[in-house]
Design a protein around this nucleic acid. Structure first.
Lengths: 300, 300
DNA sequence: ATAGTTCTTTGACCTTAGTCAAAGGATGGC
DNA sequence: GCCATCCTTTGACTAAGGTCAAAGAACTAT
């Protein structure tokens, strides 16, 4: 991997410093007005992640990276203040789940209102056009920072994460294809494990957010299948990253050509393949969901 | 002032949250590895701001917003660790100045190295083109955030900040004009105070970073002079903001036309005036440094 | 059924961060 | 020379943030 130019590192650090000093400090200050920062953050995290059954202490502990004892005490003080209610987890009596009380919800709403007005206070200094340029620049930056944090990893075709991605992929296709999608069309774990092929999962902060499969098609030819990106992670350029990983893997195996097919409904995917250097070819196989076939010759 | 759309507020907060969680946390973590965060920040601030005589505790106290006692104790621990040396301020025996020892410099360099490699680690996830898009987006965002934080304030023509700006302005022009610049050409404080005119200073975090003057030229006509922006605050769109303030002030006085002249060397200024709706007119007065004359009709 | 693991609670403890007030030396204005 | 002010140091104190280990209840694998 080529080293990052020091100029870009310096620019990035310059922004980090400016932003954390201006906005980070401001954030902590508003959060810490009524209660300790830790408690405020905890309350906020509960509000953010509670489901119908609340949220388990275990999950909170993982998300916030807190000590079990510390968390236990903090939730207790929130409980005595009437902000949250603790109960045992329905499925597992070792776990406790915590959920907001109406009073807690009021407090979180108040916190949000304050954070909104602080953010608005910052933006007020700009006119409409400048504000939309800022919004756009921040959106671009966030997309790229997210992409930078995503890793694409080689996993076994049987891995639970791999199957979970394929499940989500099948659900997506079932919703998009007019004729629906039959899970029987998914690759078998064996086809994408060991010598037969490979499976890649993209992780963002530990969560699988995309995948792609490669399987042997003929001598020196690989087939790419099931390139998928979670709805929350689209428009980041992640599919391209997955594709790169698949192509690199094909080359590693001396498969110098890769092929793939795609459904007529997936127009963005087709555009992406073309942009990635794939050219359309005649059908190389019968396949129920295939309308277009592509091929790319790989080189090191 | 029109309210900020809630969508933009939400976008802004989304970025804030993502960024502080990803980068802010990372920052604090690396800083706090060898020593308490407060001490690390102090050491960093000393390194950043020490001049040939070091930096006074008073200045550090102001910059970091620390309690005097707290700061005193922290510098003492840094001293016993051999990171800094304390001495009395040469000009004022009440003040102490602190400066880094060679060991302190080594530690700061080490901190910087770590911060650099963390930043590089983030950027490594992107290719060259994506990195430069990120750098550009962050630069844009920083410029706009800085602009949003700058306020343009009406001050008396005699105010020290006003005169300080004009001094800096004169130095700039002296360097830029082939023929140099004579301070006698600056407006007198009386010309830009009270009924005769007005003076505006732009402040960024309490520091004057720009100015502009308005003085009565003829009945219903104002003249704008000395629009200046500090070198550190250029390319933010600040001159335009100063100009807006001056025009609003002219309108408040029912001066419906404003004029100004400018030197041939100041090409960016001329472009800015044209973009702001000024049109070039014949010379309206003899003036030693003037090569171009502009006018704008104001309306509410 | 048992052994090992997971999760939470509790007690004990520590560092960091920060505040407040008193005191003393130094300075500036008059 | 005097007084108010400025700056730093010191002592006393507090809250927040966090760690560690023991213990007990509940679950899982075998």
């Amino acid at each position: 991997m080529e080293p990052v130019p020091t100029e870009q590192v310096a620019d990035f650090r310059r922004f980090n410093r400016y932003f954390t000093r201006r906005i980070g400090a401001l954030n902590d200050h508003y959060l810490g007005q009524d209660r300790p920062l830790g408690e405020a953050r905890l309350l906020f995290e509960i509000a953010e992640h509670e489901g119908p059954d609340g949220v388990s202490l275990r999950e909170l502990r993982g998300r916030l990276g807190l000590d079990a004892g510390y968390l236990s005490r903090m939730t207790k003080t929130l409980q005595t203040q009437g902000m949250v209610r603790l109960s045992v987890h329905p499925g597992d009596n070792r776990l406790r789940t915590v959920r907001l009380t109406p009073a807690g919800r009021v407090e979180v709403a108040e916190q949000n209102r304050r954070a909104d007005s602080l953010a608005a206070g910052v933006l007020e200094g700009l006119d409409t056009e400048q504000r939309s340029r800022l919004t756009e620049a921040l959106a671009t930056a966030r997309r790229l920072l997210r992409l930078a944090a995503i890793t694409v990893e080689h996993v076994d075709g049987h891995a639970p994460d791999a199957r979970a991605c394929l499940d989500a992929y099948a659900d997506d296709l079932d919703a998009r294809f007019p004729e629906g999608f039959d899970r029987a069309d998914l690759v078998d774990p064996e086809e994408v494990s060991g010598d037969a092929g490979a499976f890649f999962v993209a992780y963002e902060e530990g969560r699988p957010v995309g995948c792609g499969a490669l399987r042997r098609h003929a001598a020196g030819i690989g087939e790419i299948r099931h390139v998928w990106v979670h709805a929350d992670a689209r428009r980041l350029g992640l599919a391209r990253r997955v594709l790169d990983a698949l192509e690199a893997e094909a080359l590693r195996r001396d498969w110098t050509v890769v092929r793939l097919d795609t459904h007529a409904a997936l127009t963005e995917a087709q555009a992406m393949y073309r942009a990635a250097g794939y050219t359309e070819i005649p059908a190389y196989a019968e396949h129920v969901y295939a309308d277009h076939w592509f091929e790319k010759r790989l080189s090191r």
